[in-house]
């Protein structure tokens, strides 16, 4: 990465309110996908109390410094940025160290993000769960946001809370990713549908990610799905989100309504009216 800047960096907060809905997985996969598209990308782990973005990226053994040392001027930014070996357009910066829970303030966050943004096209901030100080710090430097939720009542309710806070802060645009979609359950209306969630939250949808076992496999390996051109449904979904963020017009298909042949259409209809299987 060189320090030549063109357009200002896109600084995107990845948040959800509720924990465990897929923020860190999205940040890792989106980071790799953007990097592969040639964007200089920095993923910032603002969830430093429970950091695990390093694990998902397979970079856990390479962290020496954090944003904390950069701000204290005990190291240079280049030393703290952990470059990904296979995808050198991507670098990870941990905001802090799990043993030090107190140091980060919104001003710290603004300073470090401003430094990083000078040498990046995209800065993705992995937000901690909750709507308290951790969220406020992480959100302090964000220009835009992606809210991720699953089609479950508690996750949608918490997402709504976060959207309200982002709106009062003037963060825009705020876009939605719906994660862990189960097309069969949606088709039989035993799960909130895609339209239900977008109606309720009134946000534009930037991605739909189905429930996919490959996500777990890739997490075990420390290799995001988008790294090795894996053709799994979730991998494609993450790649499409990256392209949409860059302004490409990739149509969104509701997997619970995906109907191909006549047979599939018929089955879908039966499923809808009876709720069977």
């Amino acid at each position: 990465m060189d320090a030549v800047t063109s357009a200002p960096a896109r600084i995107i907060l990845i948040c959800s309110g509720k924990g465990g809905v897929g923020k860190t997985t999205l940040t890792a996969n989106l980071g790799i996908a953007l990097a592969r598209l040639g964007e200089r990308t920095v993923v910032l782990d603002a969830d430093f109390g429970l950091r695990n973005l390093d694990l998902l990226l397979g970079l856990e053994n390479r962290i020496v410094y954090t944003a904390q040392e950069v701000l204290a001027e005990t190291c240079r930014l280049e030393q703290a940025l952990v470059k990904h070996k296979q995808e050198p357009n991507l670098a990870l910066l941990p905001a802090g160290n799990p043993r030090m829970l107190e140091w980060l303030t919104p001003e710290d966050m603004q300073r470090i993000v401003a430094m990083v943004a000078e040498r990046a096209d995209f800065v993705l901030i992995d937000c901690p769960a909750g709507i308290e100080d951790g969220f406020k710090n992480a959100a302090a430097a964000a220009r835009e946001a992606i809210v991720i939720t699953t089609p479950e009542v508690s996750a949608v309710r918490d997402a709504d809370r976060v959207i309200g806070l982002l709106n009062t802060r003037g963060v825009a645009p705020v876009q939605l990713v719906l994660n862990r979609v189960r097309p069969k359950m949606m088709a039989s209306q035993e799960m909130l549908g895609v339209d239900d969630v977008t109606d309720i939250l009134a946000l534009p949808l930037v991605g739909l990610v189905v429930e996919d076992e490959q996500v777990i496999v890739s997490t075990n390996r420390g290799e995001p799905l988008t790294l090795n051109g894996n053709g799994s449904p979730a991998a494609k979904a993450y790649q499409n989100i990256a392209k949409r963020l860059r302004g490409e017009d990739i149509p969104l298909e509701d997997p619970s309504k995906a109907r191909k042949g006549l047979r599939a259409r018929l089955m879908n209809k039966i499923r809808k009216t009876t709720g069977l299987f």
């Binding site: 479950e152 009542v153 949608v156 309710r157 709504d160 809370r161 309200g164 359950m185 949606m186 039989s188 209306q189 035993e190 799960m191 909130l192 549908g193 239900d196 309720i200 009876t274 709720g275 069977l276």
Partner: peptide, 30 residues
């Protein structure tokens, strides 16, 4: 059991209930 309840029109699908409950609780939250 759920299936029969639904056929008899005694029970809404849970996705529909989820939406209705959310709309109510969010109106208050907001």
């Amino acid at each position: 059991f759920d299936f029969i309840q639904r056929l008899l029109g005694r029970q809404k699908p849970s996705g529909t209930m989820a939406k209705e409950r959310l709309q109510l609780v969010l109106a208050h939250d907001r």
